[in-house]
Design a protein around this nucleic acid. Sequence first.
DNA 1: TATCCAGGCTTTTTT
DNA 2: AGCCTGGATA
Length: 763
Amino acid sequence: MVDYISGLNDPQREAVMHGSGPLMIIAGAGSGKTRVLTYRIAHLIDNGVDPFRILSLTFTNKAAGEMRHRIEKVVGTEARNIWMGTFHSVFAKILRIEAKAIGYTSNFSIYDSDDSKSLLRSIIKEMALDDKVYRVNSVFSRISGAKNRLIGPDDYLNNSVILADDESARMPHIGKIYQQYALRCFAANAMDFDDLLFNTNVLFRDHLDILNKYQHKFQYVMVDEFQDTNVSQYLITRKLAAVHQNICIVGDDAQSIYAFRGANIENILNFQRDYGKENVKIVKLEENYRSTNTIVQAANSIIARNKNQLEKHVFTSNEEGPLIDVIKASSDNEEGRLVASAIFEAKMNESLVNNDFAILYRTNAQSRAFEEALRKVSLKYRIIGGLSFYQRKEIKDLIAYLRFTVNQQDEEAFKRIINLPKRGIGDTTVAKISVIAAEKQDSVWEIVADITKHVAGRASFAIEGFATLIKSFKLLLDQKDAFEVASHIAKTSGLLKELYDDKTVEGLARYENVQELLNAIKEFVDNPDNEDKSLSAFLQSVSLLTTADEKEDDGDNDRITLMTIHSAKGLEFKNVHIVGLEEDLFPSQMMLESRNDLEEERRLFYVAITRAEKRLTISYAETRYHYGRLKMCEPSRFLMEIDQKYMKVSKQRSAPSRIDFDRPERDRSESTSTGSMAFVRSLAQKTAQRQTPQQAAAHTPSPDFAPTSTATLASGQRVEHAKFGFGTVKNVEVNGTERKATIQFEQVGEKVLLLSFAKLRVV
DNA sequence: TATCCAGGCTTTTTT
DNA sequence: AGCCTGGATA
């Protein structure tokens, strides 16, 4: 037996050895949480608990895979039998087994957010609502938010608070849309991501026999990243653990970064209440084994500014380590170059490999500059997230074929493939079919399968061909495994041929992507862990892959990792670059406008910092492209929030000091060795010329604009704005963190400008 | 029905 | 800048 106890510290050992009863582990960043969780499960199995009776919920499937692997090393192949995965994948599996109880069949489709939004778009159109008012994204997030709080369509329509809310947002019909959306999903035998959790709750609520079965089955329930669970997830775990009460949650409130998705920090507090304060064993893991003292203390100095948090003192006995480097760049591209060369140097000086580096940013769109710069110095990199493999058009197309073959009620898949490849079936024909389907109260497929009965004319031939094609695919389902069916469909549908005929570089890439998908299906079929090798089983697993789950290239695996901070959760790297530390970008202006949760942004920064083991570098740019326009940027307030004694300013750049943050430099072009400021200036001029005729006519600005702040403005001051021209400052207002100026412009009259946005110059 | 072009809009994060 | 939509055209 492997001795996994002796290497642990006291609280870690306590958590591992804790037997039955509720256990809450508050695990600071880098405190060996995964280790505790794996050893705890291994310890249970060693003590005779049947792996089949352990349920362990993780944040990504990859995390589940790794944990399983580590447990296997301790207890052997038994570990394969543990129920382990994300909430979504585990409960999709259970719903597949129990589908009939809630009126679904086990081959139900899973709608990804594109499918959901496309369905919402149709509904909004059908209800003759203005899609400028009912923006799909906001409707979707309202519905998603409701589902995550277990509010069904009927509850929604009966909830006066919500209705009043919608009313004031001038979208009073969201409830109706929600109702229609739910009906259509059900009719399509489809569930969206939120439904997987919502319907699990419904299943357990309405079918006590089924609930009972799983309550007794799962003797031990473990939930990782508990701070990021929402109410819907919380209730599932609470119900499942109600019989044995052996629930162990692991989390860190300081790393809660998914409140926008309905995650609820209060779950941690509810936990004690639900199981009784005296029954809950609490273990705090506060020693950080990952990072240098500098990094740990800097992170602490950031998170200390949040009011909402549990008491915790993260410390480390690691070495002090180098100070945090701050790099100021003149533009986003310059930032890319500086980061690339910093990595290049660090690789040499510290003899590191690419895998030791990560570049973390707030938004996926920021990756571009780093990709270009890294490519230029021939550093290999990989991007996690962004447009993922499974979101590519060609992949979604083939998957839509597969989905429709498995489930002909799948409306979104149908819409996608009915005229793909082009077979002369246009929107009008499709609309006609749905009208007939609605009249006859049939599914679209019933009409399509028997088209000659309903429609005569040219299009009906094409549709007949489509129906025959799908029918022939259906016949294969019971006889062949997922791979055989899928490759047959790829060939016979004409999709593969169409891509093969496309000889452009992109066409070739798309063809290869489809081959890659077929390979993935082959792997799925060949994997002994998968008992069910049907196409339906593959589709369910594939819809729930996380961006972090994506397969890595087999060949050259030593790569610098580029990703958003959100995707970096749970990972660690020797050297970390946090980039784009500009006000409005990080903290994100969107977040502050929509939810005004600066604390969550700060936790996000905390997560980013604590990914680093040895060296942390933070950078920002003074100008950045935004919707193809050059935008002036101010350094983020987060830079000032770090205890300055842990920071130093990179030698290559002119020093950003406390003072610099409040006062724009007049002339910085000399300090940039590449002369990039001149380049930026010329671009600024070009950009100005590219504006709409009206704007250009209004004012062609002088090029030399600087970030503006309160320190540079006083009432009576003359200013020039990039768009509005010359004006006089009337009033400057500082309200908390928001800084506004009222300016009387000569050409356009009075304007109130948010300073961080203003392209202002004092004249 | 398919294709081309102009104009408008976008970006917060993810299961 | 890139993507999507809608209208005009082939």
